[in-house]
């Protein structure tokens, strides 16, 4: 009898504990925060968000180049190395843009739309030279997109929102465009050197060039 009572108390105790756990307050109340400091205007925010997907598409394309040149039958570890590095760099650019939007008070909703399953633009290349040429075209495309953001954010006028975003434009031209132009020059130089060797030393030229890339030599 006593045992039964004890059991009953125990059951009641656990039940009440469960009852308490079921009432956990996990969501915090909304705070009213002044929003007149959030000055980025819609057309500009839209372009910046699109750029995240652009950068990640570039990242995935470099990732695919890395994968292609890692194949045993292709065997160009130097090319694979620089392309894997570029893939992670492009991903870092996307993260930098997200960071900027967060700093300016953005991305408080609809975050799922920011990254929409980016896929590589291609998965195989005829040789190292054609991959380098594709990389240069890709960089030129990304550069045009960044310039496009800058021009939109300087004069977003169309929607009646007249706000020249000096800070964003300065950040894009200073940080991003500098890196774009330097990267493009580097790729063009590589294409030039490799292209000249291929004229008469096809396979050997690419073989030697690949080992230079692998050792981190400037080529």
């Amino acid at each position: 009898m006593f045992k039964l009572a004890l059991l009953g108390v125990a059951v009641l105790f656990t039940a009440s504990q469960n009852g308490v756990q079921g009432k956990m307050t996990c969501k915090l109340p909304q705070v009213v925060i002044p929003d007149d400091w959030i000055t980025m205007v819609d057309p500009c925010v839209k372009k910046m968000k699109e750029q995240v997907q652009e950068e990640l598409t570039a990242a995935m394309t470099y990732f695919a180049m890395g994968a292609h040149f890692s194949k045993d039958t292709v065997n160009r570890p130097g090319f694979a190395k620089i392309f894997f590095e570029s893939a992670s760099e492009e991903r870092d650019h996307a993260i930098k843009i997200i960071g900027y939007l967060l700093m300016r008070g953005g991305l408080t909703k609809d975050i799922a739309q920011l990254i929409r399953d980016p896929q590589p633009l291609s998965e195989t290349w005829a040789d190292g030279l054609s991959a380098l040429k594709d990389a240069l075209k890709l960089e030129a495309h990304v550069t045009r997109k960044i310039r496009d953001i800058a021009s939109t954010c300087e004069e977003p006028g169309r929607d009646g929102q007249d706000f020249n975003d000096y800070h964003l434009v300065d950040y894009l031209t200073g940080d991003f465009l500098t890196e774009q132009y330097e990267g493009q020059r580097d790729l063009a130089g590589k294409i030039s050197n490799l292209g000249k060797m291929l004229e008469s030393h096809g396979a050997l030229g690419e073989f030697l060039f690949d080992k230079k890339l692998l050792n981190g030599n400037s080529v």
Partner: peptide
């Protein structure tokens, strides 16, 4: 997870396989 994806793709290359991103 990004670094691990790269490791897996490198490993496939090592074992004579290839990646298919799709």
């Amino acid at each position: 997870t990004w670094e691990k994806a790269i490791d897996l793709v490198k490993f496939m290359g090592k074992r004579g396989a290839h990646m298919n991103f799709r």
